[in-house]
Each structure stands twice: as structure tokens, then as C-alpha cells.
Amino acid sequence: MFMDLGGPNDGTPKVLIVVERGEWEGACRLPHMLRRAGALVAAFAPAACRLFRSRYIDRAIHPRGEFLPSLREHLEAEGGGYALVLLSDEGLVQRLASEEGHDWLDPWFPVDRRRAGDLISGKAPFVKACQLWGVAIPESRICFTQSELASAGRSLGLPIVVKASHGCAGDAVRRADTLDDLPQVFRELEPMVPLVAQEFIDGRVGSSIILYDRGVPVCSVSSYKHRCFPAPYGPSCAREMLDGPYLDPMLERVGRMTGFHGFCAVDWVQRRSDGAFLAIEFNPRPTPPLDAGFCVGV
């Protein structure tokens, strides 16, 4: 049984978690964390969503009919009572960021869609934005054809990392060690062009989960990916926490670049040769390690 959220003026912040598809693990960890922070938690998702297995959800709301029209109806009726609306489904965020005709969502969307919607809609736009804003990233090329990918391999030097603009959990990431590897890599990823080709950086990969207040970092949790499963570029199953201000300049610049509001994550690699941190991906959603913050006092 789910209790109703408090009234609009009772002083308790109310947060709405929105998930269109049911397998986003980061969203499942939000209710406990938000409850610890003193918020009341509502969830808008299909009834079968695993998010509803959490005992920390105060109100369950299921779409009646199509997802987006139902979400619009709910937000127009009750959205003013939420301190924060967390769109926690990356596919939904990226689709809405690039589609027109959803102006009703603007008050709750994590970025100004007119200014920054495109740059959170995929890996390729994020790379272009980083190059414009001076965010340190591995040297990169955007490729649409096999010949462009081969040219990128020659100019960047091998090995290179090739990733589709859309994908998660490493499902569309490949490493090419020789020029002969590139045709097969392109065939595997061609349905998902444009592709991002990046120089391979020898170093430790990690991630920072950040809470932004309209582009200003409020707090963050950073960690190395100590072990990944089931593939080298897949989700991490063991993490090593990182303390210190080393990543602050990067996270502050990404915040100014995106104007993001809410929880998101920046994946990075720390170059072994000089210790520099380079951004490699942006995840416009809460990611699973976010609830590890309490382990390190965040």
C-alpha cells in the first residue's frame, strides 16, 4: 500500500521519479537515497517497473494509456507540488531532448532544451560540445562512413575506441587494435551511426555522479571502475572511491556547458602518464553508484 504525499505546504520536499522502461538500476536506488535525505518519493512508471519493488516509494502512479500523454496530464495537474522531477530513463531523456513539440515538459526537463538539448541527446553531440567548451576529452572524430572511420584510425593512432552515439552499459563500444579491425567494427555499429572514434587512453576509468542545481555542482561522488562485468567496457561490479578536488574543474565546466538540473554522471579516464582526467561520456540520468555516497559522507 502506498500512502499519499503530504500537502503542498507541509514543508517536506517531494520528488517524482519518472521511468518509461523498467530496467534502469540507477532509478531503483533513488527512493532509499531520497528518503534518507528527508524527501517524500513518488514514482511515475509502468506497473511492471522494478522500481516499485522499493519500500521507500510513498506514492505509485501508473500511466493510463500512452506514456507521454499520461505524464503530461499528471504534471499539469500536480507538477507544481514537486521540488524535483527526475527523468531517470536515459532513452526517454535523449528522445525528449532532441524531439520538438514537448514544451509542456520544459519546467521539469533537466536542461534548457533549446540551448543544451542536443548535447545530451547522444555521445557524438557531447563530444562536439566538449570540443567547443574546452572540456578535456581524448582526441576524437565523428564518423558516418567506413572510410571516415579508417581515416580516424590513421590520424588518431591505434588502438582506438569506437562507440555508437547511443548505447549504454558498454553495449555499443568496441576497441580496434589494427586498421584491419575497423571494417568489422563498422559493420557491427553501422546501424547506430554516427560513431565516435577516440584515441585509446592508457589509464584508469571511472565515473562521477553529480547533483547539479541548474548547472552548479551541489555534491558529487567519484570512483574508479575497479572491475567490470560481463565485458571490459560494461557496467562496473566493484568500485574504488576517489576523494579530493581533482575532478572539480571538469565537473564545474560540464555544469556550465549543460546547465543540468538533477542527477547525472560523467564517465572519465585518468591518464596514467600524467594523471590528467579526461571526460569520455555523459549520462543524463542517475546511475547505480549514486547511493554509495553515504559510504564516504556525501
Score class of each variant (00 low, 15 high):
Pro194Cys: 06
Glu199Asp: 09
Ile210Lys: 01
Cys219Asn: 07
Phe229Gln: 11
Gly234Lys: 02
Ile210Tyr: 04
Leu211Asn: 09
Asp177Lys: 08
Ile210Ser: 02
Tyr224Cys: 06
Leu179Val: 07
Ser208Phe: 09
Glu188Asn: 04
Leu182Gln: 02
Tyr233Glu: 12
Asp177Thr: 04
Ala231Tyr: 12
Pro194Gln: 04
Arg227Met: 13
Pro194Met: 06
Asp213Val: 11
Pro232Asp: 03
Leu179Trp: 03
Met192Ile: 09
Ile209Asn: 11
Ser223Ile: 00
Arg187His: 14
Tyr212Val: 01
Thr178Val: 06
Asp177Val: 08
Phe186Asn: 03
Leu189Glu: 01
Ser208Asn: 03
Arg204Pro: 09
Asp181Glu: 04
Val216Leu: 10
Arg227Thr: 07
Val216Met: 09
Met241Gln: 05
Ala231Asp: 13
Val196Met: 04
Gly234His: 02
Asp181Ile: 02
Phe200Gln: 09
Asp177Gln: 10
Leu195Ala: 04
Tyr224Met: 03
Phe186Ala: 11
Val221Phe: 13
Val196Asn: 01
Leu189Pro: 05
Ser222Asn: 06
Ser207Thr: 15
Ala231Arg: 14
Arg204Met: 14
Gly234Ile: 07
Leu242Arg: 05
Ser236Gln: 09
Glu240Trp: 07
Pro183Ala: 08
Asp202Asn: 11
Gln184Ser: 13
Met241Pro: 01
Asp177His: 14
Phe200Gly: 04
Arg187Pro: 00
Leu179Asn: 06
Val218Pro: 05
Gly215Leu: 05
Arg227Pro: 00
Val218Phe: 08
Leu211Lys: 08
Phe186His: 01
Met241Asp: 05
Ser207Glu: 10
Arg214Asn: 08
Asp213Met: 02
Arg187Gln: 13
Asp213Asn: 13
